[in-house]
Every structure is written in structure tokens, then in C-alpha cells.
Design a protein around this nucleic acid. Structure first.
Lengths: 169, 169
DNA sequence: GACAGGTGGTTCAGATTTGAAGAACTGGGA
DNA sequence: TCCCAGTTCTTCAAATCTGAACCACCTGTC
């Protein structure tokens, strides 16, 4: 094994900054969503993906890609959403095994209600804290970082999940 | 309530990049540590903090600051470490309520053994993917982001946790 | 058509996390 | 001294997450 290349001061600063920002932002948004909308971040993301899809329906598998939980985790979260009436399960017409998650009207309403507060929180926690050029560097650099760790042959899943949380509705 | 300021394209790219990089890196490192050293990232961080402290001992409370888990989470993780003989609990001499977590020799060995692989993984996943200037921008920008969400009157807890994982031993 | 191998989702047990509640104690003022 | 508010840490139940095991099903091949 080669000699270990330890982190120098600047590298360490970047790593620690990343670690701290990461956990604080995630915890902060998790709480904001829970308080304001009764949703976990994972659930919010599911709703966003569904709302962006034509018909408001997406195969479980497609949902799992790009959504950063395990398959069983997704099953669990969708069940929770179903229990609250925000999503329905429907069997896939082209593949009997398949299951479609379908956004209900209540789900769409919930998302519509939650989105403004969430976007505001994202701005306050991250976006509006950054300068314009920092924002771009961050987007490029972290984009590369994320892409490299992406399972082979998998689309970003982030490419166009725009929907309610992105552009003006 | 003011009109919602939705995210424009560049802002959205930054946010999504952040989200994806965040979860992929964290998941990746979690697995690397688990496989190579049988530690969770949280446990690794605890060991690092202890190894950097004089005497290898730190109050639970001090450990909790800067470590991004709840108090009960810390109790749980320290119990796990104790069960594996990497850490001992000792009561604090200056405050009967207090508990000191103390690094055992086995704990120090475990950390020493785990550190090179972990640093290599951090490099491969994040640090070596970034250009020099991106690294600095990221450190400054995310440093600011993390600091803003820091509970009032709390030191970074990241300031000097150097120890084994930082500089050349 | 029948088979082998891969896919899609769920279920399960076990690990982890969280906030709330509790038990024990400190510290400073009346 | 006594009391009260605040601190420290643990315990508890409930929620969540994970990987492995599992069943049902699709698909390409012979």
C-alpha cells in the first residue's frame, strides 16, 4: 500500500466544511418540513418527482433511482404517504410485477402548500448564503462529485425533477 | 407572506448538486468504514475527537457539540464503542453528573488502522475530484453555510479535531 | 413451449435515530 | 441552609432505515 497522503490544511477545511454544512442543512430542512408540512424530506422529494411526471404517476423502480434511499426504504415511505392519502398505489398496466405510485389530489395540494416554505428554507440555509460565483462553482464541483459516485448506467434522476419545487408554478 | 422566490436554473443546479453529492458521499463513506473497519462514520468521528484530546478523554457533552447527533444518539454510539472495547466510560472528577468517554489502547489502534483507508476514500470521493480553487471556494462557502446554522454560542467543534485523520502522524 | 437468469416489490429482523421524560446533581441567591 | 432553575446523561417508545430473503413475474434462448 502506498504512503498515506493525509489532508493538508486547505483540504481538511474543505472536508470539514462539507461535513458540517451537509449535516446541519439536512437536519435543518428535515425539521422545517416536518413542522410546516408534516413531511420528511424523503417524502417531499417523492411528491416532487410524482408531481413532475405526466399523470402524476411513476414506477417504483424509477422513483428509487435518484432518490437516495434503498428499495425497502422507498416501499416504507410510499406506504406512509399512502396511509396519509397523498399517494396511491396502482398496478402497472405493462408489467404485472410493477407498481405505480400515483399522486392524489390531496398529495398535490399538500405539495403545493409545502413548496413555498421549503424553497424559502433552502434559500435561507444555502442558496442565499452563497455569492453568485460560489454558487456556480459549487454546482459544477459537487455535480461532478455526485456523478462519479452514481451507480453505473444510471441517469442523474436529478435532471428534470423540476415540478413545483423548481420553477414558478 | 411575500411572493415566493423560486430557484432559477443555476440555483437549482447548485441545490441538486449539493443534495446528490451529500447523500452519495455520505453513503459511500459509511459503507467504506463499515467494511474496512467495522465502524460507522459517527463512531469514527468519536474516536477521532477522543484521540485528539489530551488524555484521550472528553466529556459526553463536549463530544455531543460539533458531533452531529442528538444526545441520546451519542449515548447509544458510545455504548456500542464501549461494548467493543474501544472506549471506556469514567465518571467526571469535577462533576458527579458528568461522564468522560476515554479512548482505550484498542480504540487507538483501531483508529490508527482505519484512518489511512478512510482518508483515501475521502480523497477519492471528494477532495481529489476538486480543482485547487474549487476546493478553496467550497471550504469558504460551505464553512459559512455550516456556521450560520450552528446553534448559538457553540464553537465549531471542527476547529481542531485534527488528530489522526488530519496531519501526518 | 420450457428453462435459466434477471427484475420488481415486499416482507422481515435487526440496527439506528429521535424527542420526550426522568433521575441525579450543580450553582447561586433568598 | 434551602430552594429553584438549569445541566448532564440515560432510558424509553416510536419511527425509520438497511440488507437479505423471498415470491411472482418477464425475457431471451434453445
Amino acid at each position: 500500500m502506498a504512503e498515506t497522503r493525509w489532508l493538508d490544511e486547505r483540504e481538511m477545511a474543505a472536508w470539514k466544511g462539507f461535513l458540517e454544512a451537509t449535516s446541519r442543512v439536512s437536519r435543518h430542512l428535515e425539521q422545517q418540513l416536518k413542522e410546516d408540512a408534516g413531511l420528511s424530506h424523503a417524502q417531499y422529494e417523492i411528491l416532487v418527482r410524482l408531481s413532475a411526471a405526466p399523470g402524476g404517476e411513476v414506477r417504483m423502480t424509477d422513483l428509487a433511482h435518484g432518490l437516495f434511499t434503498s428499495k425497502s426504504g422507498l416501499t416504507y415511505q410510499v406506504s406512509q404517504l399512502e396511509k396519509h392519502g397523498l399517494v396511491e398505489r396502482r398496478s402497472c398496466p405493462t408489467d404485472v410485477r410493477g407498481v405505480l405510485a400515483v399522486l392524489t389530489p390531496e398529495g398535490r395540494d399538500t405539495l403545493r402548500a409545502a413548496a413555498p416554505g421549503h424553497v424559502a428554507a433552502v434559500r435561507a440555509a444555502l442558496i442565499d448564503v452563497l455569492e453568485r460565483d460560489e454558487l456556480d462553482v459549487l454546482a459544477h464541483a459537487l455535480g461532478r462529485v455526485g456523478a462519479r459516485l452514481r451507480p453505473a448506467g444510471q441517469d442523474s434522476g436529478m435532471a428534470d425533477s423540476g415540478g413545483i419545487s423548481t420553477s414558478s408554478s
